[in-house]
């Protein structure tokens, strides 16, 4: 069916294909090693984030093994089994043991990962501690607004009917408590090692409050308030990103986070009260 020249061509093509796959394998692994030094998870700054990073690393190792194994297998097969003159391929096409193996082994791996994932998920979405600092968050085109309770720790009354462009939280102007509340734009201040509970919503379209250093992300959905909480544990300055396409100015919708000591926070809050 084929002559020698053709056979030689197939062998050469097989070698090239094998080299291409092996190159992918090596470049794929090495570039990750390089990336780990230059572009990696942003510096961690929350207690909850540690277990997320742990999960990430476990998955990274498992998937790296699978990536290498599959590409190695294909690379070797392409090298070893090009068409040859006068010989035929093997004819087997069922093997219950083999098929059960590669059903059960990935299943076990994935179930273990799944359980680990569920545990961390449950921890992230557990009930917030009672001493958590509370902050209301509103997303709007194209800024974040934050509302802090006054020094007495109380929010003033608010209701949807008071919501206007200048009052996105709908704060009741007749409630004196609201005079003590602090509203900031694109500026979130947190207390180190104190849990923070964010009540997140939006007043126009969907935004997403992304806090990459704290490993948290929550869409801000108009019409509903969603709570998340976490505990920042490293003082410093961080960034807020809007992670949900919210319009033409989406890329400009960002904010700053300052994680500071309780004393510094109290001082800052006092300075903001008009």
């Amino acid at each position: 069916m084929e002559e020698t020249g053709r056979t030689k061509d197939e062998r050469r093509a097989g070698r090239w294909a094998s080299v291409l796959i092996m190159f992918t394998l090596v470049a794929g692994v090495l570039s990750f090693v390089w990336s780990a030094k230059s572009y990696w998870l942003l510096p961690l700054a929350s207690i909850q984030g540690a277990s997320i990073d742990e999960l990430f690393n476990i998955i990274l190792v498992l998937t790296a093994i699978a990536f290498v194994a599959v590409h190695l297998f294909i690379g070797i097969a392409l090298w070893r089994f090009p068409a040859r003159q006068g010989t035929k391929a093997a004819h087997w096409h069922e093997h219950l043991g083999a098929e059960l193996t590669w059903t059960v082994v990935p299943a076990i791996g994935i179930i273990i990962l799944g359980i680990a994932g569920e545990v961390v998920w449950a921890k992230v979405y557990s009930a917030p501690p009672a001493n958590a600092q509370q902050v209301d968050v509103v997303g709007r085109q194209f800024e974040w607004q934050f509302r802090y309770p006054g020094p007495d720790g109380k929010f003033g009354r608010s209701a949807p009917k008071f919501v206007t462009s200048g009052n996105p939280f709908g704060m009741d102007p007749s409630d004196p408590e609201n005079k003590q509340n602090v509203v900031t734009i694109n500026d979130l201040h947190l207390v180190v090692n104190r849990p923070v509970l964010l009540h997140i919503t939006a007043i126009d379209v969907i935004h997403s409050l992304s806090l990459p250093n704290f490993r948290m992300k929550q869409d801000a959905v108009p019409g509903r308030v969603v709570d998340i909480w976490f505990t920042p544990d490293k003082p410093g300055a961080y960034q807020i990103v809007c992670a949900q396409l919210c319009g033409v100015g989406h890329y400009t919708m960002r904010g700053n986070i300052t994680v500071q000591s309780q004393g510094a926070f109290d001082q800052w809050l006092q300075s903001q009260i008009k």
């Binding site: 294909a17 392409l78 391929a89 098929e99 590669w102």
Partner: peptide, 25 residues
């Protein structure tokens, strides 16, 4: 995550089909 299992089965079956084949590139 359950979807990973049938996907893995398919991948391994493709790889195994190559093994001891007479591949025309």
């Amino acid at each position: 995550i359950i979807i990973a299992v049938p996907s893995a089965i398919k991948t391994f079956n493709w790889c195994t089909t190559l093994w001891h084949g007479r591949i025309h590139f």
